[in-house]
Design a protein around this nucleic acid. Structure first.
Length: 749
DNA sequence: TCTCTCACTTC
DNA sequence: TGAAGTGAGAG
């Protein structure tokens, strides 16, 4: 049984769903708390009949169940298993039936995105968080109507560059700053049936972007995995922390799972829309972008030229003053330079007075301002081919070297922005969109290789030699290893958590008013208590996950005194002592405008540890290769389908699924992944490049690729045709990776 | 560059 | 009606 938004769960009344509460005890076939270390470990749910009832990959389920069940039967101290273990109702662990589906995802408002993208989309980030505009919306099809899916979104760094807006163009300004802890946002409606998802446009407009590293709207989970790139901590949250003047790429994920608890073991189908790439800014740099926002964002109506808003009044005032100035100038010089006058006016009005700009607001993609800066005009003229062509180009561009790209870095898309230094063959090399549907073609990344390839494909940069040089220099700079976004690392275990690429997972926000813990201890930041459906089950199912608060330098996870105590006691957790007093927790929650769930903050785990874990995760992810955890993961494990979550490995006593086990695992993973840096990316890139080879193909193939039936392009990897079983592909690719990380190059033309 | 306040908007 | 989302502009 899983909770969802549809479950009538209301904070304060949802306790009935909490497995830790006494009245829930009967629902459990078994209930036990195993182990006591580390305190931050969430409970591992264990059905009474072992692995069979747990919908986990065989490889994972077996060792876990063997250990847990075996330990219980033989009297082995639970502590030897490491994590606290909770047994959950069998019914919640019943495996799902595998039903074929063929998900397709279409980006909504693509035309709008194209308009922005052509000029280098900027997204404002603020301390309190700013929504994305255009909003990220997709429409799904091809889902199994009856199956449940969890939809997620995250934003990853597009490259390792820092940018500056110079001479009306975005230019590389050096190496990227240390990456912020990444978070994944779970759509608040998750989980929902395929039918439900397909019946509406899935919007992620509530996701906010922030530059506040102390943001409390997130938490981190950590769990072991043999997939290095996904081993460690996973952050979720309603706000994504970004670096200003850095380029980012939103991603959309479809996970077929009827319960959040299965998320860690489910296959992620990732979709990437190049046109949604953007540069985070604290203040708009490109006036054209500003104008586009004003013209299209309802909330900015007041700044539109049309209307009686402040903008209009100001404009009129400015115009008036300008006329006075101009008249005076004419009298003084006896001549009138219309062009200069316009230019002056343009400068003074900051484009608000530009006629050309006013037309930008239309939904149609037209030239914005021919009269504007040469760079813009140039860009526009080049972009007149249409947004679709532009997209195709993005995807197909492959020849030029991207200066900003780290060796092996899969994602380098600096060239994607129109406002970049001229002279680059922006349009050259673009592939015509063969299919009308290509406009909706995302770069599907259900397979690691494809995902990486997609970005790799795009990475070929348009950067000038100069920028390339700068990037090179920047690259030479000390890595981000030193970066520790989160303050204190109180637990050694947390340190290694970050050794591997750690993709951030963000659990949805708008789940307010719903309980998300029907069960197990999950370390959540107070800010997450408002989350609902997805979390309800997630908490219950994140057994092997280590939860930590991420991105928070202050505070402690808010915990309901009652529930927390109950949970803590049940789990034998010791971290509660590190938490704030209940009233303080309430204060923390209140400060965030969040209602504290009665059972809410279940996790008495030391906030500091969580932060440390997140920091470690972030630091690990900051490596060039790890810049794109998702893609990197794929690189490491080329799969048509992959799970960002851990895959079971033999668990040593005392470690098991716990974080304690992470060190060794992470280390091993890191060791394996390390050498792959760069090469691995290349490997992954090959299939991906194929996938993105043609916009039309992307679209038509997205489903196929995502489904894993066939994802590799016949052009590049004929031997990897759909007929090849997924397992075989995985095995082959993985073995190849391990043996020859760079083999991919040879395999990919 | 960034942060904050402001007037204005939508919902 | 008020909370929340906007860009402008000052500092």
């Amino acid at each position: 049984m899983s909770l969802s938004m549809r479950d009538p769960v209301i904070p304060g009344t949802s306790m009935a769903y909490h497995p830790f509460l006494p009245h829930r005890a009967p629902d459990f076939a078994m209930s036990a708390v195993l182990g006591h270390q580390p305190p931050f470990f969430p409970a591992l749910t264990l059905p009474p009949n072992g692995a069979a009832a747990l919908s986990l990959p065989g490889a994972l389920a077996k060792p876990i169940m063997d250990q847990l069940v075996g330990a219980a039967e033989t009297g082995i101290p639970f502590s030897s298993l490491g994590p606290q273990t909770h047994l959950r109702p069998l019914k919640t662990m019943e495996p799902e039936e595998e039903v074929e589906d063929d998900p397709k995802v279409h980006l909504e408002a693509k035309e709008l995105w194209d308009q922005f993208h052509k000029r280098g989309t900027e997204m404002v980030i603020t301390k309190s968080g700013r929504r994305m505009f255009p909003p990220f919306k997709v429409r799904c099809s091809g889902l199994d109507k009856k199956a449940k899916y969890i939809l997620l979104m995250d934003i990853i760094a597009a490259d390792d560059c820092r940018y500056k807006f110079h001479n009306s163009r975005w230019m590389v300004a050096g190496k990227a700053d240390p990456e912020m802890p990444k978070r994944m946002y779970i759509h608040p409606d998750s989980p929902a049936t395929g039918e439900q998802w397909m019946s509406k446009v899935v919007t992620f407009h509530k996701l906010k972007l922030t530059n506040n590293i102390s943001d409390k709207h997130g938490f981190t989970l950590a769990f072991p995995s043999d997939q290095a790139t996904w081993q460690g901590n996973y952050s979720f949250g309603t706000q994504t922390i970004l670096n200003s003047m850095h380029k980012y790429q939103p991603r959309f994920h479809i996970v077929r799972a009827n319960d959040i608890l299965k998320l860690p073991y489910s296959t992620f189908r990732t979709y990437l829309f190049p046109e949604t790439e953007f540069i985070a800014v604290t203040a708009y740099q490109n006036d054209k972008i500003t104008q586009l926002k004003i013209d299209n964002n309802p909330f900015a109506k007041g700044f539109r030229d049309t209307g009686n808003g402040r903008r209009e009044k100001r404009k009129q005032l400015t115009l008036q003053s300008m006329r006075v100035f101009d008249d005076r100038h004419k009298k003084e010089n006896g001549t009138s330079d219309e062009s200069s006058s316009e230019q002056a006016a343009f400068n003074c009005f900051a484009q608000s007075s530009s006629p050309a700009v006013s037309t930008v607001g239309t939904s149609n993609l037209k030239d914005l301002c021919p009269s504007e800066g040469e760079s813009d005009a140039e860009a526009d003229s080049k972009e007149e081919h249409g947004p679709e062509a532009c997209d195709a180009a993005k995807i197909s561009t492959t020849t030029s070297e991207d200066p900003c790209r780290d060796k092996g870095s899969p994602a380098v898309k600096a060239h994607l922005f129109a406002a970049e230094p001229g002279g680059r063959p922006r349009d050259s090399g673009r592939l015509d969109k063969a299919s009308p549907d290509s406009r909706h073609s995302p770069a599907t990344i259900s397979s690691s290789t494809r995902g990486l390839g997609a970005e790799e494909r795009r990475s070929p940069g348009r950067e000038s030699a100069a920028t390339s040089k700068a990037a090179e220099e920047a690259r030479a700079l000390p890595g981000k290893e030193a970066f520790a976004p989160l303050t204190v690392q109180t637990d050694p275990a947390a340190a290694h958590l970050g050794q591997g690429p750690l993709p951030g997972l963000g659990f949805a926000p708008g789940l307010a008013g719903q309980q998300f813990f029907n069960g197990h201890p999950l370390f959540l930041h107070p800010g997450q208590f408002a989350m609902g459906g997805a979390f309800s089950s997630m908490a219950a199912g994140m057994g092997p996950l280590l939860a930590t608060v991420s991105g928070a330098s202050t505070g402690v996870s808010g915990l309901d005194s009652t529930a927390m105590a109950s949970a803590a006691a049940a789990q034998g957790l010791s971290g509660a002592s590190a938490t704030l007093p209940f009233h303080l927790q309430q204060h923390v929650l209140a400060s965030q405008g969040l209602a504290m769930s009665p059972f809410g903050s279940l996790f008495p785990y030391p906030y500091t540890y969580m932060a440390a874990a997140a920091a470690a995760s972030s630091a690990a992810a900051s490596s060039s290769v790890h810049r794109h955890p998702f893609l990197n993961l794929n690189t490491m494990r080329p799969r048509l389908r992959y799970s960002p979550y851990s895959i079971p490995v033999p668990m040593p006593d005392g470690s098991g699924l716990l974080t304690t086990a992470l060190p060794s695992m992470a280390a091993a993973a890191a060791a394996a992944a390390g050498p792959l840096d760069g090469k691995a990316a290349a490997l992954a890139a090959s299939p991906a490049s194929v996938a993105v080879d043609s916009g039309s193909e992307l679209n038509s193939r997205s489903s196929t690729l995502s489904s894993g039936s066939v994802s590799l392009s016949p052009k590049l990897c004929p031997e990897k045709e759909a007929a090849t079983s997924e397992l075989q592909n995985i095995q082959r690719l993985v073995s190849g990776l391990e043996a020859k990380p760079d083999r991919s190059r040879s395999a990919s033309p």
